[in-house]
Design a protein around this nucleic acid. Structure first.
Lengths: 215, 215
DNA sequence: TTGTTTGTACTGACCGGTCAGTCCAAAGTG
DNA sequence: CACTTTGGACTGACCGGTCAGTACAAACAA
């Protein structure tokens, strides 16, 4: 990745600083809940328990803060996907399904955080710098999922895929986007439960059709 | 639906008025592109070629305008789904796939408009009135898709579904949400083309696994 | 025919308020 | 000393919304 925080001429950011971490966390949640424009620097400062001045002290601008939030989310996702697909011992469609299920659990657990992704394209549309970062974000995530598919399936199962791994990766990301949107809409526990049921249907049907039978 | 524009004590809206139609169209596109908070009344007025005052003359508030945009989108979706699934002559998985493909084309064609849906939950989160309308929107759309599935498949094919029609409807809406998000991210023609390919994969795999073989 | 009234569409100027961002003096901290 | 943190005052831009007033055509009255 090569020190992405040093490009674009942004000032260096001390990520180990406790306040910086608090601000990043508060900002991620606030952006996820209310969107980029719907979140004020004051709200972020309040939720982080620091002064507004300090936020401006650590981050050049709101755009910079958003960028760093984005960057951290990418790091989290990458490290999670790496961890999830590290072991090379799973070699069946059922294990593949389980990996998808675990990915879903990850999304649900960090939903407030991950929802920021739905905001990326809105901000990117009138901000070239952020648009570039979104593109990087997407391609790095895609590469990581492809690698994860290789790790989870191994060469033997990989041969049985009816479409190439790259297309499987794109497919997984697309249905996960659908899950995120549906969850954003769902209000109340039964609604969330129904969304989970729906995603399980998607997962089961796709897995079933994704592998050629053993010849 | 019963004259939805008369509920909530909103002033009646002359939908035949040329300016009103221009404003609604401009607002739908602007909300779809930049989100609710990212769109100002001034921008909408400019794009509609009218004064900001006129927008406030026809619509009580920004919230009211958003509500009317939502209402019109619901009308369009309902009438489109009705039209798409009217004929009862299709009775094969291939025809089912084609109906999904047509729905995709509809989404792509009106994407700028439909993208507003991604914004609904953001606005609804801190606006009870809009939250109620979103819930109505969702349930009416769901009912319409279920009815459409019945029409497209007919009793014979309906029996072969491995999950009930209601779950199929939720599944379709979820993967369409994924499509909309992916399209929102896609920049450039090849990117859009790749998203289409991905959605085709989803559609094909799901359709393949969705029907029991003829016994 | 001429004048009056009424209703609708529409506008520019303006108001109160919010927001991102700046500046700075002061205080704590390692 | 250098770094971090606070709080407060301030600016310029923008935003949603209001308001007085214009334009105009149809209906009505003399």
């Amino acid at each position: 990745m090569g020190n992405p925080e040093h490009i674009d001429g942004l000032s260096t950011l001390n990520r180990d600083n406790r306040s910086v971490r608090k601000i990043l966390l508060a900002a991620a949640r606030a952006f996820g809940r209310s969107g980029y424009r719907g979140t004020s620097m004051q709200q972020i400062a309040d939720r982080a328990g620091v002064s507004k001045s300090l936020v401006h002290y650590h981050f050049d601008s709101k755009e910079h803060l958003f960028l760093e939030v984005q960057l951290e989310l990418l790091r989290e996702l990458l490290s999670y996907v790496r961890e999830l697909t590290r072991s090379g011992a799973r070699r069946s469609p059922a294990q593949f399904e389980q990996a998808i299920e675990e990915a879903r659990d990850f999304v649900v657990r960090d939903l407030e955080h991950i929802r920021v992704m739905l905001e990326f394209h809105n901000v990117a549309r009138d901000n070239a710098r952020i648009a570039g970062h979104v593109a990087t974000f997407q391609s790095e995530l895609m590469a990581m999922v492809v690698e994860g598919i290789h790790n989870v399936l191994g060469p033997s199962m990989l041969e049985r895929l009816v479409i190439p791994p790259e297309r499987v990766a794109r497919l997984l990301l697309q249905i996960l986007n659908g899950l995120i949107v549906d969850l954003a809409y769902a209000q109340g526990d039964e609604a969330v439960q129904r969304v989970h049921e729906t995603f399980s249907d998607v997962r089961a049907l796709i897995t079933q059709a994704l592998f050629n039978p053993l010849s």
